[in-house]
């Protein structure tokens, strides 16, 4: 099997990414939440400047940039819908580029997908944030497509250059 799985598998993976990209770019966060399994973990460790590659990412019980379950992700989405969620009023213009570089069936019905991420967030007149990193996902077969059971995202910045992080990646 190639790094991207079979042609059929890759097409299914790509299709799922396309669907998620559309939901996020269009701010359809309630629908986006439906892409997760009920017990999913959404985790973004901190990248630090370490002597070796192995020391870069913070561990599972360390401080992180996000460490969410579906309940807290839902809270974040509900907050974004508040009339006083200033961070997204007016809304950001978001562009997602997600490029899978490893697709690996794990066991019956589960597939591990690693992707590069490039997300550009433009807000108001001049605010311009570029987030790059990689994403390590575990997906579960569901309803002819997939559901995200685990998502681990590592951004490349050790000091986040954006003044805040109100987007999902």
């Amino acid at each position: 099997m190639s790094a991207l799985g079979s042609a059929e598998l890759f097409f299914r993976v790509r299709s799922f990414i396309a669907r998620e990209t559309r939901l996020l770019q269009e701010g359809r966060f309630e629908e986006w939440l439906q892409l997760f399994t009920p017990d999913a973990r959404y985790w973004m460790p901190i990248a630090t400047v370490a002597e070796t590659r192995a020391g870069v990412e913070s561990g599972p019980s360390d401080l992180a940039l996000f460490d969410e379950n579906v309940e807290t992700l839902t809270l974040r989405v509900r907050r974004l819908r508040s009339r006083t969620a200033w961070t997204e009023i007016p809304p950001s213009r978001l562009r997602y580029f997600v490029d899978p570089y490893s697709v690996e069936p794990v066991d019956a019905g589960r597939v591990k997908v690693m992707s590069n991420l490039l997300v550009r967030q433009c807000r108001l007149h001049r605010e311009d944030n570029l987030f790059t990193g990689y994403r390590e996902d575990l997906w579960q077969e569901a309803d002819g497509g997939y559901a995200i059971a685990e998502r681990r995202v590592v951004l490349d910045e050790a000091v986040i250059q954006a003044k805040n992080m109100t987007l999902f990646v």
């Binding site: 401080l63 940039l65 969410e68």
Partner: peptide
């Protein structure tokens, strides 16, 4: 730890607004 991440820091539901306003 999770409550802190949800509330403060660059992605925290409180702190994101401070960043918006201060900048």
């Amino acid at each position: 730890r999770r409550d802190f991440i949800l509330s403060f820091g660059p992605s925290g539901m409180f702190e994101v607004e401070d960043g918006e306003i201060w900048s």
